[in-house]
Nucleic acid binder design. Structure first.
Lengths: 256, 256
DNA sequence: TATTTCTGTTAGATGAATCTAACAATAATA
DNA sequence: TATTATTGTTAGATTCATCTAACAGAAATA
């Protein structure tokens, strides 16, 4: 039923991955090493080894050293590869801090499908093979992200189209959500402003590409009411001001 | 201890998200709707509602309609935003098939940290704001990925640097892993060949940017032994032939 | 050899998330 | 109103993953 991978749960994948990691440096893997490696009590390791042995993924008998079977090593390597791929995407492309990236990757590695994994690997190859793209990401997005790290600070406007005014070649096309007349819709192009403001809007679902409709424009005292993905949301005018939209479906009046 | 988000587990996030989703179309959320929405038995919903109510994330009493509190709606929206972000990354950037992307996103949404999420949102804004990048991804990576879908087929060589010969402007710099002399290392640049071959190499950890060292070159009958991340691996010569490397640390002899 | 220490195992408990089957409350229909 | 769905709840079981505490086996040391 909810048996994802023939009985191999995320936790078991972690054990396999740990065994592979240990065998990379030590010549043998013992229960103790695995427990330390996964920050788990040795008492938790034994039953996991039993299950892995039943599934023919390790060779194990009471008190013996632990070895991976071919099948187990395959799963271990695949899991490790997923982990590395995700962690590299987070650090190298998105610029997530490495401790955090490890943690995210550790949790997500069990849920990335084969086909997405294959594509993510291709993505890295593509970036590496395409110097133009690499340059764009590094000089453009990369230096913009540095700005994200210094809380609330703004990054080099010349380079970063995201925070604050930015280079935005199509700045002219964009208007603030606050200016959207009632009944009209727009697609979110980007969120201006400091980190905290951005984050709280993103948390509410204000993400590039998503359509917003204005239900009731706000004032200084009255929050705007908008629809996002069909959900009604109240946001203060100050928040609406920093959401930049590309207008679609201009049925109502036209504003500046 | 291992309490990630103040008692709100991944499963509870799913329930909150489902409630938000239901309230987007229906005017009320009932146990039945939630059960249907999450493909879960109604008997599983009741205890979940109790826990959510205890945590002050929904308003609920026996047999009542279910409403989100402000706090609960916040978590629900954040989870939905993560979901959308991941699912869009998978479909729009990586080109994963949408059913699969949904599934992956559903599982990963509980594990993406705030900071990675923030950066992923910025990534979308950056791509949208940078027409050059958008074009590159779409015409280059995008059309290359189409090739991935037709099993084993090759995509337009003019445009795709990944599969087969590709445009590879720096083709000259690259040499096959099979040609790497013993003791020498290289960094993986890309994997040539059909989909199945690529996938099995990726599964073993052959991913762009990773360093490989040759332990023992192979022959038609004898597999190569290489080291990847410190792990020893045997691969058939035919597989080594399609791994393209950028050489580093040329201590040994020089090959063509 | 006897003792101590380290390592691994077992037993038993806990908590999360689910299920089925039986029951209760409500709503719809005859 | 009486009967029949439909909907929600409870009880009880299961599975997974973990823990602590107690014990057993092996190795190191006295």
């Amino acid at each position: 039923m909810s048996d994802p991978k023939n009985g191999v749960t995320g936790s078991l994948e972690d054990y396999l991955e740990a065994i592979l990691r240990i065998l990379g440096t030590s010549s043998v893997a013992r229960v103790r090493d695995i427990a330390d490696n996964l920050q788990v009590s040795p008492a938790s390791v034994t039953p996991a080894m039993k299950r892995l042995a039943e599934l023919d993924l390790i060779r194990y008998s009471k008190r013996s050293y632990i070895e991976l079977t071919e099948k187990g090593a395959g799963i271990a390597r695949r899991t490790a590869a997923r982990h590395r791929l995700l962690s590299r995407f987070l650090t190298e492309i998105l610029g997530t801090e490495s401790t955090q990236a490890e943690e995210d990757a550790c949790a997500m590695e069990h849920h990335l499908s084969d086909s997405s994994m294959e594509r993510l690997a291709a993505f890295f190859e593509f970036i590496a093979a395409c110097p133009e793209l690499g340059r764009l990401l590094e000089s453009g997005f990369g230096s913009c992200l540095e700005g994200l790290d210094q809380l609330g600070s703004r990054c080099s406007k010349a380079v970063c189209p995201i925070i604050d005014t930015g280079c935005g070649e199509e700045q002219g096309d964009l208007s603030s959500l606050a200016e959207l007349p009632p009944g009209c819709s727009g697609t979110i192009a980007r969120i201006k402003g400091g980190r905290a403001d951005r984050r709280s809007l993103i948390d509410m679902g204000f993400i590039q590409g998503v359509e917003v409709t204005m239900d009731r424009p706000g004032s200084d005292e009255l929050p705007c009411i908008v629809r996002l993905d069909g959900y009604r949301l109240d946001i203060p005018l100050s928040a609406a001001l920093i959401v930049l939209l590309r207008r679609v479906d201009v049925t109502g009046g036209g504003s500046a």
